[in-house]
């Protein structure tokens, strides 16, 4: 497989994952804006921050208003990270890697872009938001379904999966990074009427509020939420889950190519650390520091993958 094709597959699934996560963030933010209008502005601000576009937003708008934020995140041409821009990039990457995709995966990706482009052709009104966000989730589910149902489990599939889980780990880490202060034990005294809605927002941002309750009942504690998002091995958006998948896929690639890659070693190392470090130890280090280190390591791994598999021509 061409290095360029591998890169396109990797980025195609990164962009798709990012678009879907962005929709999730908007959904959680919108809920807060509806139910607790007093903190709406703060919440939107942290959504913009988690999506990495707070600066770009303020370059255009002075004040934070729901309708503006929503349109900025979904469709503003000045926002290169808008959902529609991400879908366009995903679609262009799929077009570049067309010969490595099944017809089903290509068509699902192409149709997602066509559908969302026409759904967001005009400014999105607040009353239409749930429908649009539902559409984003549905379209990305279609692409994922086509991928899992029709792709050969070859190197191309591995690159798609690597893109998905690296992006997802980054996204979960970012939301934790923006909200980490809410999870600090000093602020969340057991038994006090601490703001559970805020924690719920975090869980909602990763579509985990229901599953968390299933597993923990009503016992919501800061540590339990952090543990769930960082170390829980069955929660599909946790850092540990993502890294198990990343490590597996790099392992398959090494096996397939009959070699040992630096990125494979690196991923294994991160996995082992996660297994040896209980949540108490993470809080001892400092949640903020831990997350920061993780984001750096995750970026480092992405760069190593790019090098190991010749995504680009290296000089020399």
């Amino acid at each position: 497989m061409l290095g360029k094709t591998a890169a396109s597959l990797f980025w195609m699934s990164r962009y798709l994952e990012r678009a879907e996560n962005s929709a999730r963030f908007i959904e959680a933010g919108f809920r807060i804006a509806l139910t607790r209008s007093a903190s709406a502005s703060d919440e939107w601000s942290s959504v913009l921050k988690s999506s990495g576009v707070l600066g770009a937003y303020h370059a255009k708008h002075d004040t934070i208003e729901s309708a503006r934020v929503i349109n900025f995140l979904l469709r503003d041409p000045d926002n290169s990270g808008s959902v529609i821009a991400l879908m366009k990039q995903a679609r262009d990457s799929a077009r570049t890697a067309r010969i490595a995709l099944t017809r089903e995966v290509w068509e699902a990706t192409n149709e997602s872009w066509i559908t969302l482009k026409s759904a967001m052709a005009k400014p999105v009104r607040e009353q239409d938001l749930p429908e649009i966000l539902g559409l984003v989730r549905q379209q990305s589910a279609l692409v994922r379904g086509a991928t899992l149902g029709t792709m050969l489990r070859n190197d191309g599939f591995n690159f798609l999966r690597l893109g998905t889980f690296l992006e997802r780990a980054d996204s979960t880490a970012r939301i934790l990074d923006v909200k980490y202060y809410l999870l600090l034990p000093s602020l969340a005294q057991i038994g006090s009427s601490v703001d559970n809605v805020q924690w719920e927002t975090i869980l909602r941002s990763v579509s985990a509020h229901r599953s968390f309750r299933w597993l923990n009942g009503t016992d919501i504690s800061a540590q339990a939420v952090a543990d769930y998002l960082i170390l829980h091995r069955q929660m599909p958006r946790s850092l540990a889950f993502c890294y198990a998948k990343i490590s597996d896929n790099l392992g398959f690639l090494d096996q397939n190519y009959d070699r040992k890659s630096s990125s494979g070693e690196l991923a294994k190392l991160i996995c082992e650390q996660q297994q040896q470090q209980p949540i108490e130890a993470i809080f001892d280090i400092g949640l903020h520091e831990y997350i920061n280190e993780f984001i750096k390591a995750n970026n480092g791994l992405a760069a190593q993958i790019e090098t190991d598999f010749n995504f680009q021509d290296r000089i020399g």
Binding site: L2, G3, K4, R95, R98, D155, Y257, D313
Partner: peptide, 29 residues
């Protein structure tokens, strides 16, 4: 892309190729 796909051939662009040991070669993973 259609023809490459249906022939089972690689689809390359100029920046995927360079001359290596006197042959035209494509950069693979």
């Amino acid at each position: 892309s259609f023809l490459a796909d249906h022939m089972g051939a690689e689809l390359v662009e100029g920046h995927d190729l360079k001359i290596v040991d006197g042959r035209v070669a494509m950069r693979t993973t």
